[in-house]
Design a protein around this nucleic acid. Structure first.
Lengths: 169, 169
DNA sequence: CCGATATTGTAAGTATACTGTCAATCTACA
DNA sequence: TGTAGATTGACAGTATACTTACAATATCGG
């Protein structure tokens, strides 16, 4: 049977999953930035460094697929990382459209040094929950993100995106 | 005992709660915008309308506390809602700094009409999970957001924010 | 009552996050 | 082979989300 229209209260907002996801994301960023303030790196910049470290010579389009961030957004992120001299961009000899991404020495150093702070931030986000609940939440969230992958504008394409990588110089 | 430095892999990103929260937020916004495309309202604009509907004559600062969005951000949101004629701003007679917020007729109509679409969006976000898991996730997330409230830059202040409201004309 | 302090809305600046579009370039099919 | 279609990086435009700063205004302590 169809439900009658409910009176609109703030609970329509507070109990909505979308609102909770937004709040949690804001909290997570806030904690990350606080723990990593000594490194002047945002969560997105950190994720980009990890991906470039793991896949040296990746291009911007594949990078966006590997961390599931929008290609346009990533352009600016890459610009900032380059202006901070944490990464280097080299034109590909095989494809004149492509610019390949590499960590610089200082980029690799920053990535190595920031890891403990990142780890602390991740722990802090879940700290208020009981250990068993942390595991449950993480498992359900992992599952949900995976099952909803195609619903996002930029689905994660961890493997396919790199299928043809490594053959380039 | 202190853990040894791990080799850095993409798992450092994929399994981090912060990354999962970000992905889930992106997915949630994507689904919301898709379901509500007929109304040209973003999640934040929707939440603002609900809060103004629930608390007519609220001011921007209190509104930011009630939905836990940053005051500066909200300034732009309010501007857009006003330019779409969904809300009206009236200067307070009691405090010359303050502008009170009210839903317009069309704002109230839009809010009434968008509710089913919002509801569909919220359902879709959790759809891939089993019903019992949806409840568990929502309960843990609610708990975590609440316990982490003070860690966010703009903590939710649902009650206090409105303590002195309603006395104004 | 008056000066220190706080609050309000606004603005400027940075950083995601998305939509488009575009030119240069590459690929594949006819 | 030669061109239609796809891809790549770049850019413009919109919308959060935060920081700091500021002028106007309120409020509170002395």
């Amino acid at each position: 049977m169809p439900s009658k229209p409910q009176p609109i209260t703030m609970d329509a907002v507070y109990t909505a999953p979308g609102y909770l996801f937004r709040r949690m994301q804001q909290i997570a960023v806030s904690i990350f930035v606080e723990e990593c303030s000594a490194f002047d790196l945002t969560p997105v910049q950190y994720a980009s460094l990890v991906a470039i470290h793991t896949h040296p010579g990746i291009d911007a389009t594949r990078l966006s697929a590997v961390i599931a961030f929008d290609r346009s957004t990533l352009g600016n992120v890459i610009e900032r990382l380059e202006s901070k001299a944490l990464i280097e961009r080299k034109p590909s000899r095989e494809d004149k459209r492509v610019k390949l991404l590499y960590l610089s020495k200082s980029g690799a150093a920053v990535l190595r040094d920031i890891m403990p702070s990142v780890e602390r931030a991740q722990v802090r986000m879940l700290q208020p929950l009981k250990p068993a609940d942390r595991k449950t939440l993480l498992a359900l969230l992992t599952q949900l993100v995976d099952l909803n992958n195609e619903a996002s504008r930029v689905p994660l394409r961890a493997e396919d995106a790199l299928e043809h990588l490594g053959k380039a110089g």
